[in-house]
Amino acid sequence: MTKSRLFWPLVVLAILLLINLIYDPSFFVIDIRNGHLTGSLINILNRGAPLILISIGMTLVIATKGIDLGVGSVIAMSGAMAAFIVDGNLGDSERLFPLFLAIALAIGLSAATGLWNGMLISRIGIQPIVATLILMVAGRGVAQLITGGQITTIYYEPYSFIGGGYLFMLPFSIYIVAFVLCVALYVTRRTALGLFIESVGGNPLASRLSGISSKNIVLMVYMFSGLCAGIAGLILSSNVASADGNNAGLWYELDAILAVVIGGTSLMGGRFFLMGTVIGALIIQTLTTTIYSVGINAEVILLVKAVVVLIVCLLQSPEFRKKISGLFSSSRKTPKDEGVNHHESL
């Protein structure tokens, strides 16, 4: 049980939820309001949806020993693009065509950014951190270009459904995440693709020599990451019915990388754990919710977050756990070890 990669992240998540329960006994209660299921747990899933999506994309990128710093900017671009399309359709809420056009163009743009990243990295050989840094900086510029540097408010009603609508009593964004997660799990675990990704991350040269098209695998994971970020951007901008080129998705790339690492995937590439990532993202979101519900002072929020992340990372490290358990049992073990050494030297 404790050997499982998911064990320690799950423990941390459980502890966070329990802390909430102490401060708010009704934390786990899910009731029906306006015909929707509401409650803190639903809220965490709903709020965490964009982060989970991005983290799923990021996991595959990191599995190929890469990194995608551009996702935050892609969120802003995607939201800006969608707002640009549906803007001017106010009052005209019955036509659904602008909605689908906005979704198609926003997602198309995001996939194109992924293609751009993938081309730079796989075909031209730029290091991932540098290549995606370009988009991280330039993407926000593009988003501001689209919105004209302003915060665009969207009055087109159907657009709000993506991030604020409900289906079968649950927020629609949860279904989006579940769908993307299932597709990612199926493709990586039921087909050979997952193995290919891990092998490219482990040793690109060896994979290429054994007949795997490393370059195309790399290209594909960046496109997938861009796609995930694009969907997340739609959810985020739809939720507040506005597009903000400056602040939408700001620092999301860092949270996503953190979620991946908490989930047990190494930044050195190779093996990856999608479910671990999902739990990692949920930990980050639960932490935010906890901070709000406990009422921690605004000035120390970042410090509290850092401390929790540090604890999670320490718990994740086998070395650290060995040292700790060594500390507790050292008094008994040490003389015994000396004895053995002594015996051997004889």
């Binding site: 709020r47 939720n239 507040v240 903000d244 602040n247 709000y292 519900s293 009422g295 605004a298 929020i301």
Partner: peptide, 16 residues
């Protein structure tokens, strides 16, 4: 609580 001057955070904090 801080909402960081943005709509997204303003909404999330108000929810809590």
């Amino acid at each position: 609580q801080t909402g960081d001057f943005t709509r997204t955070d303003g909404k999330e904090v108000m929810e809590s």
